[in-house]
Amino acid sequence: MEFNIVDKLLAITSLGSEWVLWLLLALSVISLGVIVERLIFYARIRLDFVNFSREVTRRLIDNDIDGIKGMCSTSASIESQTILRGLEYKERGVDAMEQSMTGFLFGEKQKLDHGLVILGTLGSNAPFIGLFGTVIGIIQAFSDLATNPAGGPSVVMAGISEALIATAVGLIVAIPAVIAFNGFQRVVRRKLSNAEAMKNLVIAHFSE
C-alpha cells in the first residue's frame, strides 16, 4: 500500500479550524492572566523615584542612615530594597555592600521579568496560529467544493469567510500581548536603572 503524505495531511484538515479558535481563546485567557498579574505586581512596587532619590540624597548628606533604613523599610520597591540590602553589609566595607546590592538586583530582575516571555511568545506567534487556522479552513472550503461542485462559488466563499475569523482572532490575541510586553519591558528597564542609580549613590557616600 502506497503512502501518500498529501492524503494524510488533508485528513488533518478535515478536523476543521474550530479547534484553532479554541486554542486561541485559551491563549487569550493566559495572556490576560499574565497582564493582570504583572499590573498588580508593578503597582505594588511602584515608587515616586524623583522625591525618593531626593530624600535619600538629603539623608545621606546628613549621615542619617537610620532615617534611610526606616524610610526604605516601609516600601516594597526594588529601589528601596536595594538600598536596604547594601546597608545591611555596611560594616563589612564598600566592596561587600556593592556586591550584595549587585547580587540582589540580579535576583530581582528575574522577578521583574516573570511572565514576560509568555507575552512575547504570544505576541509573536498568535497571528501565525490564526493564519494556520485560516489555511486549514480554506483547504477545507475547496475540498467541500470538490465534493459538491453544484454548490458553486458560494460554498467556497462561505468557508473562506469563516476561515478568516481565525486570523482575526489571532491578531486580537497578539496585539494586546505585544502592547503589554513592550510596556512592561519599559517598566523593568526603568526600575533596574533606578535601582542601579541608588546603588551608585550609596556606594559613593561610603567610599573613601
Rank of each mutant, 00 (worst) to 15 (best):
E18K: 12
R59D: 11
V188A: 00
F206R: 09
G123A: 05
P149C: 10
V6W: 09
E208I: 15
T74I: 08
D64G: 07
E2S: 15
D95E: 14
I40W: 12
I175R: 12
G159E: 02
F128I: 07
S124N: 13
L15T: 12
R58C: 09
S124L: 09
P149A: 08
L201Q: 09
G170R: 01
F106I: 11
Q81I: 11
C72A: 04
L84S: 03
M101A: 08
K90R: 15
W19A: 04
R44C: 09
N63P: 11
V187Y: 11
H205I: 14
M198K: 08
V202Q: 02
A177R: 02
R189K: 14
V36D: 15
K199S: 12
R46V: 11
F206P: 05
S143L: 01
L9I: 15
E162H: 02
N4K: 14
L39S: 12
I138V: 04
Q99S: 10
I139W: 00
F181C: 08
S53Y: 14
T57H: 12
I172G: 07
A168Y: 02
K69Q: 14
A158M: 13
L25I: 15
M1I: 08
A195Y: 01
S207H: 06
S154I: 06
K199D: 06
L171N: 05
L9P: 02
L201P: 01
I136Y: 00
F49E: 10
L131P: 00
K90I: 12
A158Q: 14
V50G: 03
S75Y: 06
P153I: 11
G137V: 09
Q140V: 00
G70L: 13
A197E: 13
P149M: 09
I138N: 00
E37I: 05
I5L: 11
